[in-house]
């Protein structure tokens, strides 16, 4: 069995710049090595992203399979104008969000509940002191679960921007390209997601 070297945790652009064109030609020719390269280069990243949305391992695996199948089937329709990663990320996000739809029986929380209140531009409420919250808390399983659940409550647009930027740590330019957003619009979404999460964590853990 051929080994799959662990993909490196670097920016997807940097990871693929070396020979993205070669990979695309290889996929067009339906070459074994190109399929293998596609998997070793992208499957872990797409799996992780999908897992953030869906939480269940099996579902995220299915998404990876669907996305890569779509890519090899539709590679002829892929336009060289954008990068392969933009395309891969977009399909993964769309497929994951579609998968989320059916069990949308959950209560929708308004992200606006995270917004600080002002009077005349001055804070109306007093914030709690997060210095009391030890950094080790962030590593605790229960805490991470609470945050994951909170992320799940965000509307899709804020959730997606937050996951790409703060969790997957994509550079700003790449988040903008994947989501087709201007920089201010992207920042605004990430900002609102952070406000929402800040508020929930504070209510739960910091008094």
């Amino acid at each position: 069995m051929e080994g799959y070297p662990k993909s490196q945790d670097v920016s997807p652009v940097a990871a693929s710049n070396t020979s993205e064109n070669d990979l695309i030609s290889g996929l067009r020719e339906k070459a074994d090595w190109a399929y293998r390269e596609l998997i070793s280069r992208w499957s872990d990243k797409l799996y992780r992203l999908s897992l953030r949305f869906l939480k269940r391992q099996e579902e995220a695996e299915e998404i990876v399979q669907e996305v890569l199948l779509k890519v090899v089937e539709k590679i002829d329709t892929f336009k060289g104008g954008s990068s392969l990663y933009t395309w891969l990320y977009r399909i993964t996000i769309n497929e994951s969000l579609m998968r989320l739809r059916p069990d949308k029986g959950k209560v929708l929380v308004s992200w606006e509940e995270g917004l600080p209140q002002y009077e005349n531009g001055i804070h109306l409420q007093e914030f709690s002191d997060w210095a009391k919250l030890p950094d080790e808390k962030f590593a605790e399983k229960e805490f991470q679960q609470f945050v994951q659940e909170s992320i799940g409550l965000l509307p899709d647009d804020l959730k997606t921007a937050y996951l790409l930027r703060d969790v997957e740590q994509l550079p700003e330019e790449e988040v903008c390209k994947v989501l087709e957003l201007t920089k201010p619009a992207m920042k605004n979404r990430v900002h609102r997601a952070r406000l929402f999460l800040r508020k929930r964590i504070e209510a739960q853990y910091v008094r």
Partner: peptide
Amino acid sequence: ITAYRKTAAFGKTFKKPSL
């Protein structure tokens, strides 16, 4: 700002599982 900074930072502490 302290809370905001910590909120922005913990995203990267999430586990990074692989296939």
